[in-house]
Amino acid sequence: MELDDAYANGPYIQGAEGYPPRWTVQAAAFREELANTGHARLDRPYGATPRQAFDLFLPKGPPAGLCVFVHGGYWLKFDRSYWSHLAAGPLAHGWAVAMPSYDLCPAVQIADITRQIARSTEMAADEIPGPIILAGHSAGGHLAARLCVQGVLADATAKRLKRAVPISPVSDLRPLLRTSMNDQFRLDMSSAEAESPVLMRPMDHVDVTVWVGADERPVFLDQARWLAEAWGCGHHVAQGRHHFDVIDALTDPASPMVAALTG
């Protein structure tokens, strides 16, 4: 369809096919290391289906609070097992890190996934006291942004939310109506508008910084800019980064991304 190529990332990233296998190896090694030291609570259910579960990684001392990372994949693929190593940066600053999986389209719709991520965040927050910070990548950036809007999280959890970094977010779902992926999303204009953070406002007490790689597809640069402009929030364009490696900064405790997230 009209916008299929515009929203295709892999064909424009050299060696794109090699990224998922590397992610899985890095993530598995990270999980094993933390499980061996007693700093991982794995496969915590938050809903009725097998994919409704999260992993929780714990710092060495009392947690500074809870960080939630939401993975991407166009609401169509991947799960939390690919991304465990991205917890390294926030963990080094003392934050516990929850990584949820969620059911995928077309078995569910995007609005259902938003509700699942809200529920997983609330359940992780029951285990970890203190402030809450959010990060999410691509479709996960959309989901992280949605949690910043009043009425998505339960009030008690929403009041604890301090910062969010949507990374390469899909902030306006309306263009997806002109992609073949919508055969699986099953969006119409009304449901696309209802799930588009760019048409909403974040809660006043949440500090948001939108992050995107300078070498990403033009539509992702647009999507990030649209959200930053609509929300009047921070907007960082990471030089030399594309859609698949922009998230690597989460593994580095000294990175500007981790600084923006952890404060």
Rank of each mutant, 00 (worst) to 15 (best):
F30M: 12
F69E: 01
P45G: 03
Q52C: 05
L66E: 07
D112Y: 03
F78P: 01
K77T: 14
V108W: 01
P131R: 13
A48D: 15
T114I: 15
T121L: 00
A40F: 10
N36Y: 05
P63Y: 01
K77V: 13
P45R: 13
T49Q: 13
T114V: 15
L91R: 07
Q109I: 06
F69Y: 15
L58P: 09
L147R: 01
D112T: 08
V97G: 08
D79C: 04
F69G: 01
Y74K: 03
S81F: 06
L134I: 06
A48G: 04
A98I: 10
V108M: 00
H93V: 03
I113Y: 10
V149G: 00
A53C: 12
D43Q: 08
I128K: 07
V68K: 05
A87K: 03
G72P: 07
P129I: 06
I133E: 02
A125W: 01
H85W: 11
F78H: 11
D79K: 03
Y82M: 07
G151N: 01
E32H: 11
L91D: 09
A118C: 01
Q52S: 03
H71P: 05
Q109A: 14
R119D: 12
L58F: 09
L86I: 06
P45E: 06
D112C: 02
P131I: 08
A125Q: 10
R119A: 13
Q109D: 10
P62M: 04
G89L: 07
P63C: 04
I117T: 06
A48H: 10
L76K: 14
A92W: 00
G94K: 02
C105M: 09
V149S: 02
P100I: 12
L147G: 05
L134Q: 06
E127M: 15
A107E: 15
P45S: 13
L66C: 12
S138Q: 11
R44Q: 15
A111N: 10
L42C: 06
A135G: 05
H39S: 14
D112A: 09
L42K: 09
G89A: 05
A145G: 01
G94Q: 02
L58V: 08
W95M: 04
A87T: 07
R51D: 09
T37R: 15
L42N: 07
E122H: 04
I132G: 04
I128N: 00
K77E: 14
P100Q: 08
P90W: 03
A144L: 00
G140F: 04
D112L: 03
A35Q: 14
Y74A: 10
L91M: 11
T37V: 14
A40R: 10
R41D: 13
L34C: 08
H85L: 04
D126K: 15
R146E: 14
H142T: 08
A125E: 07
S81I: 08
T49K: 13
S120D: 04
Y46W: 06
G130F: 01
M123A: 12
A96R: 04
A40Y: 11
D126N: 13
A98C: 11
R41W: 12
Q52D: 05
A88Q: 14
S81V: 11
G61H: 10
L143E: 03
R41P: 02
F30P: 07
S81Q: 12
L143W: 05
G38I: 08
A124Q: 05
G140S: 06
F57E: 00
I128C: 04
A107Q: 14
H71F: 05
I110A: 09
L147Q: 13
V152K: 01
F57H: 00
T49L: 10
A118K: 00
I128V: 15
L104H: 09
N36F: 03
H93K: 14
E122L: 09
